[in-house]
């Protein structure tokens, strides 16, 4: 369980599956903690500290080759468990087991990506049969957004007003969120996308 500003975060949304194609890696930030989220050749998602154990380079600058993530700096390759299994400068060496990226539990449900930073506690949140719209940054802290929507302190905000929306907040820093937006099927994606931009403008002006 992770607690940020009074909000209990068992699972933290970190994106939409469709934004991270097979064979790619992206950076995400949760309360100042930098994560590298990557998708292997076989399509599995992984969330690791965005830091190569070798020289500290951001692994999100790296590249995916099949079922390994390689650091862009010296090409060290990390397998699905986070363990380093190949060092290009020492091709005959079996790397010691202690060279290991720090990994977190990462799950997908209904095209939403979730990470547990602490002990896994409870089911992955359910956004129902809503479809992914987009992720967008909002220059507001999570508590301010929760207050604005008069929402209980839950990082998954469900709105049933003009549009049927589920907004999963990823608190990036104390003053910004990455909002992952899902909408009930049948709604026009462009109209919803523009509507959440308007919501963002209102939040940032508030």
């Amino acid at each position: 369980m992770t607690r940020l500003w009074g909000i209990v975060l068992n699972w933290i949304a970190v994106g939409l599956a469709e934004d991270i194609p097979v064979g790619t890696v992206v950076p995400r930030r949760v309360d100042g903690l930098d994560l590298a989220i990557w998708r292997s050749g076989l399509g599995r998602f992984h969330a690791w500290d965005d830091r190569c154990p070798h020289r500290g380079m951001r692994l999100s600058h790296g590249f995916v080759r099949g079922e390994v993530l390689a650091c862009v700096y010296h090409g060290w390759q990390y397998n699905l468990d986070g363990a380093c299994d190949y060092i290009p400068a020492h091709p005959d060496l079996t790397p010691p087991k202690t060279i290991c990226a720090n990994t977190y539990v990462c799950e997908t449900r209904n095209q939403a990506l979730w990470v547990a930073l602490g002990t896994v506690n409870g089911d992955v949140p359910d956004i129902g049969d809503r479809i992914p719209i987009r992720s967008l940054d909002i220059s507001c802290g999570a508590p301010a957004i929760a207050r604005y929507f008069d929402h209980p302190q839950d990082p998954l905000i469900v709105l049933r007003g003009k549009y049927d929306l589920a907004i999963a907040l990823q608190p990036s820093t104390s003053r910004s969120c990455f909002a992952h937006v899902f909408a009930g099927a049948g709604q026009d994606k462009k109209i919803v996308s523009r509507y959440v931009e308007k919501l963002r403008d209102e939040l940032e002006a508030a």
Binding site: L16, D19, V26, R29, R134, S135, L136, D137, F178
Partner: peptide, 9 residues
């Protein structure tokens, strides 16, 4: 550019 998935793609 971390918060722009479509720009990255």
């Amino acid at each position: 550019l971390d918060v722009y998935p479509s720009i990255r793609l």
